[in-house]
Design a protein around this nucleic acid. Structure first.
Length: 661
DNA sequence: GATTCTGCC
DNA sequence: CTCTGGCAGAATC
C-alpha cells in the first residue's frame, strides 16, 4: 500500500523493457536493484507518517474512482458498444490516413544531468553514490546511487537508509544552466529551431540535416552525442529518433544512459513498436491514469488501448498525452506564474504572514521581470496533514506589485485561519496580454489559420467558423436505448483549448524560422486535431424530438446524401457539410461510402429500437437529477462550446500513437 | 470562476 | 526530524 508500487517486470524481446522499471516513476539504471528490499525500506520509513496517511487517503479516493468507472462500464448497452466501436474504428482509420512519416525527430536527454554536472565540477565524486538534493528531497541521483534504489523524487532520509554511503550535494541551478547552454549550442547546429524542454532535454527536427548531408539519422544522433560530450567536457546523453516527438521521447529512454535508439520511419516498425509499448511510457499517463486503465479496462499496452478503444470513456488530456510536454519557453506564453515554499508546519499567524510577504515579494519580482500583470490570485496551502487547499480570487484590476499581491493574499489567508500549514504558495494568472476567453475561444487561432491556410490545411476550414461549433453544441443525441445515461465520450473539439496553443506554437516557430520547412509541421498539427468529432450521450429527451430539433437547427446545412438509397435511412441520417453526422457528430468524408451506409444503418436500427422500447416501457425511468443535468447541459451548450463530460469523460489519446507532430 | 487532480522534470 | 517547486491542463463544481 501507499508509496510507490512495483510493476511486474515482464520479460519480452522489446527494447524498452531492457529499461523497464520497477517503480512507477522508474528511471534507468535500476536493473540490479533488490526491489523487494527497497520497497520494504521505503514502506517502513514512511509508515505512520502524516505523509503516508495522506497517501492512503488519496489511494482510497482513487479506488472509489475506479469502482465508479467499473459501474459505468458495466452499464454500457450493446448499442452503446456498437456505436463506440464505430467511433473508435473511424478515428483509428482517419489517424492512420493522416500518419506522417516524413519527419525525423530526435529527442536528447542528458543522463542524470544535475548529478553529472556536479561530478564534473568535483571529480572526487566520480564512481561514488551521490544525489543532488537534500534530506527532504532528491532531484537527481547518479547511477551508482540508483543501484541502491535511490532515485529522484525520493526524500533524502529514505535514500540514506537505502544507501548509507550516499553523498548529498545541494542543487546549484546556475551550474546546470551553464552546462545546459553548452548543450544547446550543439543542438542548434542540427536544428536552429530545436525545442528545449527542461534544462536537460530537447527535441530536434533533424529531417533537413539528414537530407542535406545525406546521412542516416543514426549517425546524426551519434555525432550529436559525441559533440555534447566534447563540448561540455564530459557530459553524456541519450537520444531517441522517431517520426514524431512523442515516439522520439520514448526512444531516448530505451538505451539510457549514454545510448541511443532509432525507430525508423516505417509504418510497420512503428506499429510493432507501439503494440507492446506499456502505456505508462506515454507522456501524460502517470501513476493514477495507468492504474485506472489497468484496473477498469485491463489495459497495459498501447495495443490493448487500441483494442479497447470503444470502451474508453474515461481518459486523458490529448495534449498532454499527445505532445508530451514539449514546452517551448521561447514561444509558448506562460499562463500563470507562481511560487511556493515548504517549511516546518506552523500555526503561527505572524510567521505565516511573514512567509506570505516573502512570497509576494519574490513573485512580484518575477512578474516584473517578465512584465506580467494578472487579475487572478491563488493562495495555496498545504496543511500539516498534507491536505492541499487552493483559494482564489479574481480582481477587477490587474496587479503585479508585491503590495497588491500581499494585500489580497492576506485576505485569502485570513479566511483560512486558524490552520497549521507546512507550505504556502501564491499564483497569479489571467494575465493582461490575454484576451478574455482566449483559452476557450476556438476562433482565436487566427494567426495559425492565416499561416496554415495557404499551405495544406484542407481539412480544418470547416472548423474555422463559429457556426460549426454552435452546431456541434446542439448535436446532442440520445443514443441510450433504455433511457439511462450510460457513457459519455467527449471527442474534443478540433481546436479545443491547448491544441490551439500547440498550433500557435508551431506557427511561431514558423515565424522565427522564416522558411517554408515548418509549414509542414503546422499542417500536421492541424490535421491531427481535425479528426476530433464531438459526441454526446445523454439520457432523456426522445430521439424523435432531438431529431426534429436537428432539422430545424441544421436548416442551412446540407440535408441529403445522395449516396443513401433507403428513404428511411435518409430520414435518419444527415451529413452536415457533407461531412459530419448530424446525430452523433462522427465525421465521415463523402468518400467513405460504405462506412456511411453502415453508420446510417446503425442510427436507423437505433431509432427503431428506441421507438419500440418507448412503447414497451412507457414510463421511461429517468431520474429527475438526470433530467436536470441534461437541461443544464443544454443551456450551457447554447452559449458555449460543448463541455460534455460530467464525469470522467474525454476521448482517448490513442490518436496520438498515430499523430505526428 | 473556483477548486482539485494529474503529470512532468 | 525529514516527502520539493514550478508550471500546465483537465475535470468538477
Amino acid at each position: 500500500m501507499a508509496m510507490e508500487r512495483s510493476d511486474d517486470v515482464t520479460v519480452s524481446p522489446h527494447p524498452w523493457q531492457s529499461y523497464n522499471t520497477v517503480y512507477t516513476t522508474a528511471k534507468a539504471g535500476m536493473e540490479g536493484v533488490d526491489k523487494e528490499k527497497v520497497q520494504r525500506i521505503v514502506y517502513e520509513m514512511s509508515k505512520g507518517s502524516k505523509y503516508f496517511q495522506n497517501e492512503e487517503r488519496k489511494e482510497t479516493f482513487i479506488r472509489h474512482k475506479v469502482d465508479n468507472m467499473r459501474l459505468q462500464f458495466a452499464k454500457l448497452t450493446q448499442a452503446d458498444l456498437f456505436h463506440y466501436q464505430k467511433v473508435a474504428d473511424r478515428r483509428i482509420l482517419e489517424l492512420e490516413a493522416s500518419r506522417d512519416l516524413s519527419r525525423i525527430w530526435l529527442h536528447v536527454d542528458m543522463d542524470a544531468f544535475y548529478a553529472a554536472v556536479e561530478t564534473l565540477s568535483n571529480p572526487t565524486l566520480k564512481g561514488r553514490p551521490m544525489a543532488v538534493g537534500s534530506m527532504s528531497m532528491i532531484s537527481t541521483a547518479n547511477y551508482e546511487a540508483r543501484k541502491f534504489g535511490v532515485r529522484s523524487a525520493m526524500p533524502g532520509f529514505i535514500a540514506r537508509k537505502l544507501c548509507p554511503e550516499l553523498i548529498f550535494v545541494p542543487t546549484d541551478f546556475k551550474k546546470y544552466t551553464y552546462y545546459s547552454d553548452l548543450t544547446r549550442k550543439v543542438f542548434q547546429r542540427y536544428d536552429p529551431n530545436f525545442i528545449a524542454g527542461s534544462l536537460d532535454e530537447a527535441y530536434l527536427d533533424i529531417t533537413e540535416v539528414c537530407r542535406e548531408r545525406n546521412v542516416k539519422s543514426e549517425e546524426i544522433a551519434q555525432e550529436l552525442r559525441d559533440s555534447v560530450y566534447e563540448e561540455t567536457g564530459g557530459l553524456t546523453c541519450s537520444a531517441g529518433v522517431a517520426p514524431n516527438r512523442l515516439l522520439a521521447k520514448v526512444c531516448s529512454d530505451i538505451n539510457k544512459p549514454n545510448g541511443q535508439y532509432v525507430l525508423p520511419n516505417d509504418r510497420l516498425a512503428v506499429m510493432t513498436f507501439i503494440s507492446s509499448l506499456p502505456i505508462r511510457k506515454i507522456g501524460g499517463i502517470g501513476k493514477v491514469t495507468e492504474h485506472i486503465l489497468k484496473e477498469v479496462f485491463g489495459i497495459n499496452t498501447c495495443e490493448q488501448m487500441l483494442d479497447k478503444g470503444s470502451y474508453l470513456c474515461a481518459l486523458f488530456s490529448p495534449s498532454t498525452a499527445g505532445l508530451g510536454k514539449t514546452d517551448s519557453p521561447q514561444v509558448r506564453f506562460r499562463k500563470s506564474i507562481s511560487n511556493e515554499r515548504t517549511f516546518s508546519a506552523t500555526e503561527d499567524e505572524v510567521l505565516m504572514h511573514k512567509k506570505l510577504a516573502e512570497l509576494a515579494e519574490m513573485l512580484s519580482a518575477d512578474m516584473q521581470k517578465e512584465g506580467l500583470h494578472g487579475r487572478t490570485l491563488t493562495l495555496k496551502l498545504k496543511t500539516a496533514s498534507f491536505e492541499v487547499r487552493n483559494r482564489a480570487m479574481t480582481l477587477q484590476n490587474y496587479i503585479s506589485s508585491s503590495e497588491d499581491i500581499l494585500k489580497h493574499a492576506s485576505k485569502l489567508l485570513k479566511a483560512e485561519l486558524p490552520v497549521s500549514v507546512r507550505l504556502i504558495g501564491l499564483r497569479v494568472s489571467q494575465f493582461n496580454g490575454e484576451k478574455s476567453g482566449a483559452t476557450a475561444d476556438p476562433t482565436q487561432k487566427t494567426i495559425t489559420n492565416f499561416i496554415t491556410s495557404g499551405e495544406a490545411n484542407r481539412n480544418n476550414s470547416s472548423f474555422s467558423d463559429v457556426t460549426d461549433h454552435e452546431f456541434v453544441s446542439d448535436t446532442e443525441t440520445d443514443l441510450s436505448i433504455d433511457g439511462q445515461r450510460t457513457c459519455q465520450l467527449d471527442c474534443r473539439d478540433p481546436f479545443d483549448g491547448n491544441h490551439s496553443l500547440d498550433v500557435n506554437y508551431q506557427s511561431c516557430t514558423l515565424w522565427k524560422n522564416d522558411g517554408a520547412e515548418k509549414v509542414q509541421t503546422s499542417d500536421n498539427d492541424a490535421e491531427s486535431y481535425y479528426h476530433h468529432g464531438c459526441t454526446e450521450v445523454l439520457g432523456s429527451t426522445s430521439f424523435q424530438g432531438q431529431f426534429e430539433g436537428k432539422n430545424v437547427n441544421s436548416g442551412s446545412n446540407f440535408l441529403e446524401n445522395d449516396r443513401l438509397d433507403s428513404s428511411c435511412q435518409e430520414a435518419v441520417m444527415l451529413w452536415l457539410n457533407d461531412y459530419k453526422c448530424s446525430l452523433c457528430g462522427i465525421e465521415l468524408p463523402p468518400s467513405f461510402v460504405e462506412e456511411r451506409l453502415e453508420h446510417s444503418d446503425f442510427h436507423f436500427a437505433e431509432k427503431l429500437q428506441k421507438e419500440e422500447s418507448s412503447i414497451h416501457q412507457a414510463p421511461v425511468l429517468i431520474s429527475s437529477q438526470s433530467r436536470d443535468q441534461k437541461l443544464r447541459n443544454n443551456r450551457q451548450s447554447k452559449s458555449k462550446k460543448p463541455k460534455l463530460s460530467q464525469k470522467e469523460g474525454s476521448y482517448t489519446p490513442i490518436d496520438y500513437f498515430f499523430v505526428k507532430e
